[in-house]
Structures are given as C-alpha cells and as structure tokens.
C-alpha cells in the first residue's frame, strides 16, 4: 500500500502528471490574463477557451528540429534541460500537499524542507547561466552574465522575506509553518510586507517583465535560450512554467496558510491559492516595462533588502510581544 501511495505521489499527484498538466494550465491562465490586460484575446483556438494551447505548443516544439551548435559544449548543452526539469519537479514534491502528517516528519516533509525548497529553486538560475554559457553564442553569453548579475540582486531579499514567517512560526518545516498561520490567521497579516517583497523577488527569479533582462528579445535576441530549439526549448519552457507553480505554491504555503483538507480539498486550496499568487505575478508583468540590469541590482539593494530586514525586525518584535 505504501509503495502504491508513493508511486501515485511521484507519478500522478502532485508529481509528474499533475504538475505537467497544471503547469500548462497556469501558462494558459497567465497568457490569457496578460492578453486581457492588454486588450487582446489571448489563446482561443485550441480546446475550449484555448485551454489546450500550451500543450499544443509543447508538442509542436517537441516535434521541431533540434539543433546543437557546433561550438557548444554538447553534453552539457543537452543535459541541462533535463536536469532543470528534474530539480523543479523535485521541489514540487516537498510542498505539503497531502502526503504528510504534522506530528511525524517523513521524507517529503521534514524540519528544514523550507531551506531545501529555496535551494532547489535557486538551482534553475544556475541552469540558465550554464545553458547560456555552454551555447558560446555572443548573445547567450551576455544573457548568462545577466542571469548571474540579477541573482545577486534578488536572492537575499527573497530568502529574508520567506524566512521571516518561519521565524515567527518558530519552525523550518513548511507543513508546520502553514499550520501555525491557519491557527492564528491574524498573525499572517504581520507578514504582508514580506509577501510583497517575495512576490517581486519571485517575479525576478522567474525572469518575467520587468525582470526579463536575461532573455530580452529586443536587446539580445533570445538571451540564454538563443541557441536552444526543439525538444530542449520545450523542456525549458515547461520547466519555467513548473517553476512558476512551485514558487507560487511556496508563497501560498508560507504566507497564505498552506493547503489543508486532504487530497481533494487540499487540491482545491492549492489551485485557488496559487492562482491568486500568479494573478499578481501577471499583473506586475502587464503593468511594467523592462528595467536595466544595473537598475535591478540597485533597486534590490536600495529598497528590497532593507525592507526585508524591516520585516524581519517586525517579526522579531511581534514574537517578543507574544511570548
């Protein structure tokens, strides 16, 4: 029974199949919302309301010719998309969806899994960097340099913002943090500032406008992905969608009280809460213009990092008052 349950957990829900389908749905949701905000229609043709468009795109790319540049580091160039996808899917398994019990830590929910998820979400950035670097294309190289430059900007504020609710909840385990805020919803309001900071940092991590600098098409063509095509590009795209789901799930767990209610209600909770987070991500994308890479770093260190520290101080203060 335990084996079957683990298999279901890995392959169906919330593992491969669910994450694949949900990622494509999220891409549709993001595209549709973005299009409506811009006075366009967005996908309409494939499936009802164009719901199947991202899946169609994925399979179309899978069928396209796959080109590896002559001068690229071929092994690394080909292996990176698979590694990236595996990392993001692993991070998904650690979100407290249903396979956990609060009292008994297991392999998918243990003390410190918050740090592991954050770490796993940092790795895709390095994957992008390596992808750009191993392409040896001029534009990819510039894109790769920009990926790393941006990482120095947003990573510290993101960690500070996500860790401060954990400090208040006095736990490094996602399931416990979520349970803590479910019991005392008023305390979640303390983390409002942190939520905003984390949203902005996640936007930067996902490389979406205004932080789509590493693959700004009008400046450096495709940036890190200039040389990628066919299957590899399809996998990279899927990886970015999945990363969006996981990052939104992480924010929902830490700031919005997680996903209680067993498999069925938990799923409903998950969908509603992640879509809520992604709504804000799309809104930011539609209402801003791309800024320069030096502006990202100065913005992150001038505003985001100090505010994240203020958030941490508030949390410590509140914690002192409570005890």
């Amino acid at each position: 029974m335990a084996t079957v349950k683990t298999l279901i957990y890995l392959v169906i829900y919330p593992g491969l199949l669910f994450l694949f389908l949900y990622s494509t749905f999220v891409e549709w949701y993001d595209r549709k919302l973005y299009a409506r905000l811009q006075n366009r229609m967005g996908p309409t043709h494939t499936g009802r309301f164009g719901l199947l468009q991202p899946i169609a795109d994925f399979f179309k790319l899978m069928a396209k010719e796959d080109i590896v540049p002559e001068r690229a580091d071929k092994k690394m160039f080909s292996a990176l998309p698979a590694f990236g996808l595996a990392i993001v899917f692993t991070a998904m398994l650690l979100l407290p969806l249903w396979n956990y019990s609060l009292d008994k830590p297991s392999v998918t929910s243990f003390s410190g899994d918050l740090i592991v998820v954050l770490y796993l979400l940092s790795l895709p950035t390095f994957i992008f960097f390596l992808a750009g670097w191993s392409s040896t294309n001029l534009f990819s190289t510039i894109g790769a340099a920009r990926v790393l430059t941006m990482l120095f900007g947003y990573e510290v504020p993101l960690f500070l913002a996500v860790l401060s609710p954990a400090v208040l909840a006095n736990s490094w385990r996602l399931a416990e943090i979520a349970a803590f805020y479910r019991q005392r919803p008023a305390l979640a309001l303390v983390n409002l500032l942190g939520f905003v900071i984390a949203l902005i940092c996640v936007q930067a991590k996902l490389e979406r406008t205004p932080f789509d600098i590493p693959h700004a098409e009008t400046e450096i063509v495709g940036g890190t992905f200039t040389e990628y095509s066919g299957k590899k590009l399809a996998i990279f795209r899927l990886m970015m969608d999945a990363e969006m789901v996981v990052a939104a799930g992480l924010l929902a767990t830490v700031f919005l009280g997680g996903f209680p209610g067993g498999p069925l209600f938990g799923l409903l909770n998950f969908i509603v809460k992640t879509l809520f987070v992604i709504f804000f991500l799309s809104l930011i994308r539609a209402t801003t213009s791309r800024i320069r890479v030096d502006q990202v770093v100065s913005f992150a260190w001038k505003y985001l990092a100090p505010l994240a520290i203020v958030q941490l101080l508030i949390v410590i203060l509140v914690k002192g008052l409570l005890s």
Partner: peptide, 13 residues
C-alpha cells in the same frame, strides 16, 4: 518605444 523597452501593454494600447 514601449515594445523596445519591454512594455508590451503600452504597445498594444
């Protein structure tokens, strides 16, 4: 100009 600056909403409008 909006498109070049990555501000596609402005471009569409």
């Amino acid at each position: 100009a909006g498109h070049e600056a990555g501000f596609d909403s402005f471009f569409m409008y």
